[in-house]
Amino acid sequence: MHAFRDLEVAAYCPRKLYYRRRAGDPEVPDRVETVRDLAFSYEELLDVDAAVLSAPIEPDPATYRERLERARSELSIWDDLVDPAARDAYLEGREARGIAHKVLDDPPVPSLAFAGRPPEQGVWEPQSVRLVAAAKALAWEREQRVERAVAEYPAYGVIRPIDLTARRTGAYRRAVRTAESVDGPPARTDDEAKCDACEYRDECGTRTRSLRSMLG
């Protein structure tokens, strides 16, 4: 059984997954935890000036609040997002296991909070794979269909529900097959656009796909 995070890494770069497995799971940086905590403070960030002024957000406070206000007015699931049925819920499905930062009920929907920058539209494909993994694990546990998931980018005030389309499910299946097949260093590829931020770049030195191919 694969961890949600491993499937995300498999979709991002199979070679990185190989080195990650050799090194063991890294600790989650404090900054990532701090940013994820913002996803549980949206109402406070909207209503309390001191909270938004001291928060580790990327846009200016006015822009940040404008984005959250738009989400509050447009998303039917807003109330469930700010007060989820479960927080940091461990889910175990047929193929994958891991943590959903929030689980919404009626209908069941998993939500994951990502510390990084969102794309202009949609979600990054590796993150889409992780979201599908969480949705499928939740469906397996509840024994009912789960057709949506939510990507939250709390440092940016961006919340994006996604449907489990055939394309996203296909990317998830490919990531599962990749994770199952990685037992040695995968072949090098030709695009180093993602290598600069990789913690294994010194020992790997590979090149990977273009950023355009990462969008899901």
Results as ranks from 00 to 15, higher is better:
W124P: 03
P154L: 04
H101R: 01
P185I: 01
M214Q: 15
P126I: 15
P126S: 08
L138A: 02
Q121V: 15
R67H: 01
G216T: 00
T63H: 01
L138C: 02
C13F: 02
R20Q: 13
R31K: 14
W124I: 01
A151E: 00
A149N: 08
E66L: 11
A149S: 10
T208Y: 11
I162Y: 08
R72I: 07
A62F: 13
A151Q: 00
E203P: 06
A135P: 11
S181I: 12
V82P: 05
P161N: 03
M214V: 14
Y64I: 00
V109C: 00
Y156N: 01
A71H: 03
R31W: 10
G24L: 07
A179L: 10
W78A: 13
A3Y: 09
V48G: 01
P108I: 04
I77C: 14
V28K: 14
R173S: 00
V52P: 01
R65W: 02
V48C: 00
R168S: 11
T178D: 07
T208P: 01
S181D: 15
E203G: 13
V109S: 00
A187S: 14
E33K: 11
R67A: 02
G157K: 02
P108R: 00
V52D: 04
R188T: 15
T178M: 06
V32R: 10
A11F: 05
S76P: 12
E203T: 12
P118Q: 04
G157C: 01
E95C: 06
E120H: 11
V150C: 00
P29A: 09
R97P: 07
A86Y: 15
A10E: 03
L138H: 01
T178A: 05
R20Y: 06
R117T: 14
Y200H: 13
E141L: 03
L211M: 11
P108G: 06
V182Y: 02
L17E: 07
P161I: 04
R168K: 10
V132N: 05
R5I: 15
